[in-house]
Computed example of a mutant assay.
Amino acid sequence: MNEPQDPDVRSLDARSLRGLAHPLRMRLLDALRFDGPATASRLAEKLGESSGATSYHLRQLAAHGFIEDAPERGKGRERWWRAAHQGLRFDDALLTDVNPEVRGAADTYLHEVATTQARDLSTWLGNRHAWPREWHRTWDMSSATLRLTPELTEELVEKMHALVETYRDRALDEDDPGAARVRIQTRTFPLPTE
């Protein structure tokens, strides 16, 4: 699939994938991408981890270029971090890399993404009662099973991504009181036949 190159989206390669494919690192990166700059101690409190663990994994993320210093936020000895990119692009070729460590990191990364997506949906389901009534009828958890070729499946995925992209330009300002961050998750995969 040829996707347009976005400077705010980082393409994962074998080296960077090995630096990211750890559950805590992925959670730290997501926290910085979605909630903005933070310190190791703030992230430790938010994620229920020790500040030593978050500090170590933040340094690893920085060494691989996923995060960077946010010096405009720091006061004194506090070290603030921010995400270096707002998105990640996964190359399926990593799953068939000749190096078994790369293949293992690719598997770890994809499984953690799937776990995070399931956790996000479960959290919404558990907390939906706390949202204003207008949000109660806007969410979706649907499924469709179609009989498609790999080519038609790829076309479907491309069209779904294109549709989502048309809403990026329409995204509302963070100051809009009626707006919230909305997570769109798609899953398209073949099912085994009996």
Results as ranks from 00 to 15, higher is better:
Asp97Gly: 03
Asp30Gln: 15
Gly52Arg: 11
Glu101Phe: 12
Arg147Thr: 14
Pro192Phe: 04
Gln5Ile: 15
Pro132Val: 04
His161Glu: 14
Trp135Glu: 07
His129Lys: 10
Thr149Lys: 01
Ala62Gly: 07
Met26Asp: 03
Leu191Gln: 09
Thr138Lys: 15
Gly36Glu: 02
Arg119Val: 07
Met141Thr: 15
Thr123Ile: 10
Ser16Phe: 01
Arg15Val: 11
Asn99Gln: 11
Ala180His: 05
Ala38Ser: 05
Asp107Phe: 07
Thr115Ala: 14
Asp175Ile: 09
Thr145Glu: 07
Arg42Ala: 13
Asn127Leu: 09
Leu61Thr: 04
Asp8Arg: 12
Gln60Met: 09
Gly126Tyr: 05
Arg73Gln: 14
Glu158Ile: 08
Ser50Trp: 00
Pro190Arg: 05
Glu78Met: 09
Arg119Met: 05
Thr116Asp: 12
Glu134Phe: 12
Ile184Ser: 11
Asp140Val: 15
Leu61Gln: 04
Leu61Trp: 03
Arg73Lys: 14
Gly104Val: 01
Gln185Ala: 15
Leu148Pro: 01
His136Glu: 09
Ser122His: 08
Ala106Glu: 01
Gln86Ser: 09
Ala38His: 02
Lys159Ser: 15
Glu155Asn: 10
Glu154Met: 06
Glu78Asp: 13
Asp176Glu: 10
Ser41Ile: 04
Leu20Glu: 03
Ser55Val: 04
Gln60Glu: 10
Arg119Glu: 08
Thr115Cys: 09
Ala162Pro: 03
Arg33Gly: 07
Gln117Pro: 06
Leu29Ile: 01
Trp80Met: 06
Pro150Met: 02
Leu94Ser: 02
Ala70Pro: 05
Leu58Glu: 03
Arg89Thr: 05
Gly178Glu: 11
Gly104His: 05
Glu134Thr: 12
Tyr109Leu: 04
Ala63Leu: 06
His57Lys: 11
Ala93Arg: 10
Asp169Tyr: 13
Pro71Val: 12
Glu72Asp: 15
Asp69Val: 10
Arg147Val: 14
Thr39Asn: 06
Glu134Val: 12
Asp6Phe: 08
Val182Phe: 06
Pro7Ile: 02
Asp69Trp: 13
Asn127Tyr: 07
Asn99Ala: 11
Leu58Asp: 02
Leu47Asp: 00
Arg137Ser: 15
Asp69His: 15
Arg187Gly: 15
Leu163Cys: 08
Phe189Tyr: 15
Ala118Thr: 13
Thr123Cys: 09
Gly65Ser: 02
Asn127Thr: 13
Ala40Glu: 03
Gly87Asn: 01
Leu17Tyr: 02
Leu148Tyr: 01
Ala44Gly: 00
Met141Pro: 08
Arg10Phe: 00
Phe189Cys: 10
Thr149Trp: 00
Arg77Trp: 06
Val157Tyr: 04
Thr39Trp: 05
Leu110Lys: 00
Arg15Phe: 08
Val164Gly: 10
Gly19Asp: 02
Pro100Tyr: 01
Ile67Met: 01
Asp169Gln: 15
Glu72Met: 12
Ala63Ser: 09
Trp80Tyr: 14
His161Thr: 13
Leu47Phe: 00
Pro37Ala: 15
Ala144Gln: 13
Arg18Gly: 04
Pro150Ala: 02
Met1Val: 08
Ser50Lys: 04
Phe189Ala: 14
Gly178Asp: 13
Ala70Ser: 11
Leu121Cys: 03
Thr108Tyr: 00
Ala84Gln: 03
Glu72Trp: 11
Ala179Ile: 00
Leu94Phe: 04
Glu112Trp: 05
Ala162Met: 05
Asp35Arg: 14
Gly36Asn: 01
Val113Gln: 11
Gly178His: 08
Phe189Gly: 11
Gly178Val: 05
